[in-house]
């Protein structure tokens, strides 16, 4: 099982997700520099959290135009599994691989806390390890996690079962409590919460470890 993590200049969860992927696969992921144009061959690609290029403009907007992202877009369109966590979710929305946008939190403040999420769809490769309707606890840590899309898009996403995770107690004002989304072909997922931060009882939980284990089993 080969995995790869894209590293933008101010990614800051790149190490965290690499640790989680290594724990799930037994192999260190390839770390891919944003300035590269070619992706190594891998079974799974991850866009980590952080601030990519400082996010002084719109979160993820510049990263979406970075050299490596064209390669990621091509891979995703060819069906490779891609996940974007937090800033990675913002980047996926900015590239158009996922619909909608992530706006400033409704409360205007940065919010870091553990939230409870409901698994809405366990048919995707990303959530197959959970029962439908199960609850998991992941931390969130973001300033711009308020998911927005127009009603028609939201209806379509819900109708097609593409809302993978919903907040039980919405921390950021996201439309219809959406915490995580899947693209129409089911190989790209974006989520604001950080499963990679709960991979050991020592760190407050193991739901993230279960998430990556299920995911890796599904793509193997």
């Amino acid at each position: 099982m080969k995995t790869a993590v894209i590293v933008f200049p101010a990614s800051n969860c790149d190490r965290d997700i690499a640790v989680a992927l290594e724990q799930a696969t037994g192999t260190k992921p390839a770390m891919v520099w944003h300035g590269d144009t070619d992706l190594p061959d891998a079974d799974f690609y991850a866009l980590p959290g952080g601030f990519s290029y400082g996010d002084y403009l719109r979160a993820g907007a510049m990263a979406a135009k970075s050299p490596i992202m064209q390669a990621v877009i091509d891979k995703a369109k060819a069906g490779a599994p891609v996940i974007g966590v937090c800033n990675g979710f913002q980047v996926l929305c900015e590239t158009g691989l996922l619909p909608g946008a992530l706006m400033r939190n409704a409360g205007l403040d940065f919010v870091c806390r553990t939230v409870t999420l409901k698994i809405e769809n366990n048919q995707s490769i990303f959530t197959r390890g959970f029962e439908k309707g199960a609850y998991v606890n992941f931390p969130v840590a973001h300033h711009d996690g308020n998911y927005y899309a127009d009603d028609e898009t939201l209806d379509r996403l819900e109708g097609e079962g593409r809302v993978a995770l919903r907040y039980v107690d919405n921390p950021n004002g996201s439309a219809r409590d959406i915490a995580g989304l899947i693209n129409d072909s089911g190989n790209v997922m974006g989520l604001m919460p950080h499963p990679e931060r709960v991979i050991s009882p020592l760190l407050g939980g193991t739901d993230g470890a279960a998430f990556f284990k299920g995911l890796i089993e599904a793509v193997s």
Binding site: C13, D16, V19, G49, R113, L203
Partner: peptide
């Protein structure tokens, strides 16, 4: 402290 990211780096044992 909820406005501070206190769990990044994946090593926070006591928050």
């Amino acid at each position: 402290w909820e406005q501070y990211d206190h769990t990044v780096m994946g090593d926070t044992v006591i928050a």
